[in-house]
Amino acid sequence: MTASTTPLHLAGTGTALPGDPVGNAELSTAFGISEEWIDLFVGTRTRHFGWDLATGKVTHTLTDLCAESAARALAAAGLGPAELDFLVLATATPDSLLPTTANETADRLGLNHLPTYQIQAGCSGAVQALDVARALLAAGHRTGLVVAGDVTDRFLEAGRDATALATQELVNYVLFGDGAGAAVVTADPHDGAVAVRALLHRFTGQGRPPGQVVGWHGAVPPRPDRQMLHEDYRTIEEEVPALAGEIVWELLHTAGWRPQDVDHLLPPQLSGHMTERIVAGLGLPPTTREVSCVRDTGNTGNALPLLQLDRLLTRLAPGERAVSVVVESSKWIKAGLALERPGTRTEGQPNR
């Protein structure tokens, strides 16, 4: 359901990306994948990994990244951990099944005696977490923390000749990167906070095969012929642009906005090239400014919407509006946000 969410405000955001950016040439050397193919197929320049490409040694856990981004969000909001009433974390790649990454992150931040939640989700997880936060604020809490992120160290094999993989598995070696993002949410509008005017979170996958599968195994070893990561990239290319358009129009309808009212667009971030195609097909005015990060960060899964929001908050002027569009392709979820920074436009800003 699309819901009006006036009580939900973003008071501060923060992000964390591990290590130095990894360029396509370095990725090509590590996995034997053509640098030209990466450029042509994906259109992503760099990404970050929380593990060493040569040895597979983990340098940053998801908890590391979540705690770092959360600390930055708190600093941006001018708040301390003691002022939080809850924490909600979304990921597809937790550090362990138990204890949850949400609780490990809370411990790292020095939090105690507050409710914590962990959502198992794909790219829409950050919006799902904001939806849970909205409900918690409506129930009487005043301030909370939403965190989302993913890491790849358990799914991409260091030193592997990836050229021997099926295309559905090979694509994951060039699409993804590691990272986390966080947002401090409040029921009351703090000075400079951005208001969420509409929030969309709707499962639309009944009877539809998944576009992405991330495998899991416990005590039983995985079958040699089983792909731990499977990406139906062709289906995603066909389905995501139409779903993105539906999300935009549903958010505009709920917020009571016209297309010309949107100053900034945060489009889905599967890859650089797909983002270009999606933006071109949405039909928003050419004056709408795109806020993207995937060409520099790779697809960081749950972190992406918050990475975009972190960039948006430095650009969104008083009176300006933005639409964030998120498509979850593993089992098809439409998600998104309509955002506004309250205030009066300054002279020289375009009129709606």
Results as ranks from 00 to 15, higher is better:
residue 231 E to F: 15
residue 220 V to C: 07
residue 233 Y to W: 09
residue 229 L to F: 03
residue 194 V to R: 09
residue 233 Y to N: 07
residue 235 T to V: 07
residue 212 Q to Y: 11
residue 190 H to I: 06
residue 211 G to A: 01
residue 187 A to H: 11
residue 212 Q to D: 01
residue 235 T to S: 12
residue 203 F to V: 01
residue 209 P to W: 02
residue 206 Q to D: 10
residue 220 V to E: 13
residue 235 T to P: 02
residue 208 R to G: 00
residue 197 R to K: 11
residue 203 F to Y: 10
residue 230 H to R: 12
residue 222 P to W: 08
residue 201 H to D: 06
residue 187 A to V: 08
residue 229 L to A: 02
residue 202 R to L: 07
residue 192 G to R: 12
residue 233 Y to P: 00
residue 234 R to N: 02
residue 231 E to T: 12
residue 231 E to S: 14
residue 202 R to E: 12
residue 209 P to C: 01
residue 195 A to K: 14
residue 213 V to A: 07
residue 228 M to G: 15
residue 224 P to K: 08
residue 220 V to M: 12
residue 193 A to N: 08
residue 206 Q to C: 04
residue 215 G to Y: 07
residue 235 T to A: 15
residue 198 A to P: 04
residue 224 P to D: 03
residue 197 R to M: 00
residue 197 R to E: 08
residue 201 H to N: 09
residue 218 G to L: 15
residue 231 E to C: 15
residue 223 R to E: 11
residue 197 R to W: 01
residue 226 R to I: 03
residue 227 Q to F: 11
residue 217 H to N: 11
residue 234 R to P: 01
residue 205 G to A: 04
residue 211 G to L: 04
residue 191 D to Y: 12
residue 188 D to C: 06
residue 190 H to T: 12
residue 214 V to E: 02
residue 204 T to S: 05
residue 198 A to S: 09
residue 189 P to S: 09
residue 212 Q to K: 06
residue 226 R to N: 06
residue 218 G to F: 13
residue 191 D to K: 13
residue 227 Q to N: 11
residue 194 V to K: 03
residue 232 D to Y: 06
residue 187 A to W: 08
residue 215 G to D: 06
residue 208 R to I: 15
residue 224 P to C: 01
residue 189 P to Q: 11
residue 215 G to Q: 03
residue 205 G to S: 02
residue 187 A to L: 07
residue 203 F to L: 03
residue 187 A to E: 09
residue 206 Q to H: 13
residue 231 E to N: 14
residue 194 V to E: 01
residue 189 P to H: 13
residue 206 Q to G: 09
residue 210 P to H: 10
residue 221 P to R: 04
residue 208 R to M: 12
residue 191 D to I: 10
residue 222 P to D: 02
residue 221 P to L: 01
residue 209 P to T: 07
residue 224 P to Q: 06
residue 213 V to H: 15
residue 188 D to V: 15
residue 186 T to E: 06
residue 195 A to P: 06
residue 224 P to A: 03
residue 217 H to S: 13
residue 210 P to M: 02
residue 191 D to E: 11
residue 226 R to E: 13
residue 206 Q to A: 15
residue 208 R to E: 08
residue 234 R to A: 14
residue 204 T to F: 00
residue 219 A to F: 12
residue 202 R to V: 05
residue 217 H to P: 04
residue 225 D to Y: 13
residue 199 L to F: 03
residue 207 G to M: 02
residue 214 V to H: 11
residue 213 V to S: 11
residue 224 P to H: 07
residue 196 V to Q: 04
residue 205 G to R: 08
residue 196 V to R: 08
residue 219 A to K: 14
residue 228 M to D: 08
residue 193 A to L: 07
residue 202 R to D: 09
residue 212 Q to N: 08
residue 219 A to N: 12
residue 216 W to T: 10
residue 196 V to L: 03
